[in-house]
Amino acid sequence: MLLIIILVAALVLVPLIAVIVIKNGLVAKENQVENAFASVDVMLKKRFDLIPQLTSCVSGYMTHEKELLEKLTALRSGSRDTEALAQSNHELKNQFSQFLIKAEAYPDLKASDQFMMLQRSMNEMEEQLAASRRTYNMSIEIFNNAVLQFPSSVIAKRNNMTKKEYLKFND
């Protein structure tokens, strides 16, 4: 009789424990994705925060480029979903490239220590952003694998966990 009770308990408890472990794993992976996205968002905000410093540094030199500087400043605000971030990143890169090309026409500006420091800061920020994007996309891959592979796919489906999109910047 005791053996039957142990067998029945084992048949009920083992699947229950497996479901709990798998669900907790999925939740942890989803939290990791959100954390990685927040890291990308922080890096983008830091990069956008460099823009006012850059524009104030060059405003005395580049009086004819006011429209370009205003466009750079306008790109600081906007939505924070993956598609909007990718779009604003693409626009920022285009505007910043134009800015650097136009800065070539101002030798005094290029020689400015503050401008050189800001340019280095922007390059460092680009490297940090690229690392954050890689981390985010790796988290997405791990989460998507868990959501799509059996048996975790069954639990993911029951908990409305679906495949997430990668962060694609059109560099």
Score class of each variant (00 low, 15 high):
2 L>E: 05
2 L>M: 02
3 L>A: 11
4 I>M: 10
5 I>N: 02
7 L>F: 11
9 A>S: 13
12 V>M: 03
12 V>I: 13
15 P>D: 04
17 I>A: 15
18 A>K: 08
18 A>E: 04
18 A>W: 08
20 I>W: 11
21 V>W: 11
30 E>W: 07
31 N>K: 13
34 E>D: 13
35 N>E: 14
36 A>S: 14
39 S>F: 01
40 V>D: 01
45 K>G: 13
46 K>T: 15
47 R>P: 12
48 F>K: 10
48 F>C: 06
50 L>M: 05
50 L>Y: 02
50 L>K: 08
52 P>A: 00
53 Q>P: 06
56 S>T: 06
56 S>P: 04
57 C>F: 07
58 V>G: 08
62 M>L: 03
63 T>E: 12
65 E>P: 02
67 E>T: 14
68 L>W: 10
72 L>Q: 11
72 L>R: 08
74 A>G: 10
74 A>S: 14
74 A>W: 05
75 L>G: 11
76 R>N: 09
78 G>I: 04
80 R>F: 08
80 R>I: 13
81 D>A: 05
81 D>H: 06
83 E>K: 12
84 A>Y: 00
86 A>E: 06
87 Q>C: 03
87 Q>H: 13
87 Q>G: 10
87 Q>V: 15
88 S>Y: 14
89 N>W: 02
89 N>M: 14
90 H>D: 15
90 H>S: 15
92 L>H: 03
93 K>D: 15
96 F>M: 15
96 F>V: 12
98 Q>M: 09
100 L>C: 04
101 I>E: 13
103 A>K: 02
105 A>M: 12
105 A>N: 11
108 D>S: 08
111 A>F: 03
111 A>P: 04
111 A>W: 01
111 A>R: 04
112 S>N: 11
113 D>T: 09
113 D>P: 04
118 L>G: 01
118 L>F: 00
119 Q>E: 06
121 S>I: 01
122 M>F: 14
124 E>Y: 08
125 M>H: 13
129 L>F: 08
129 L>S: 07
129 L>W: 03
132 S>L: 03
133 R>Y: 07
134 R>H: 06
134 R>N: 10
136 Y>L: 05
138 M>T: 15
139 S>V: 09
141 E>D: 14
141 E>L: 12
143 F>L: 00
143 F>R: 11
143 F>N: 03
143 F>D: 00
144 N>F: 01
145 N>R: 09
146 A>Q: 11
148 L>A: 12
148 L>S: 12
150 F>T: 05
150 F>D: 01
150 F>A: 01
150 F>N: 02
158 R>W: 04
162 T>K: 11
163 K>R: 14
164 K>L: 11
165 E>H: 05
170 N>E: 15
171 D>H: 08
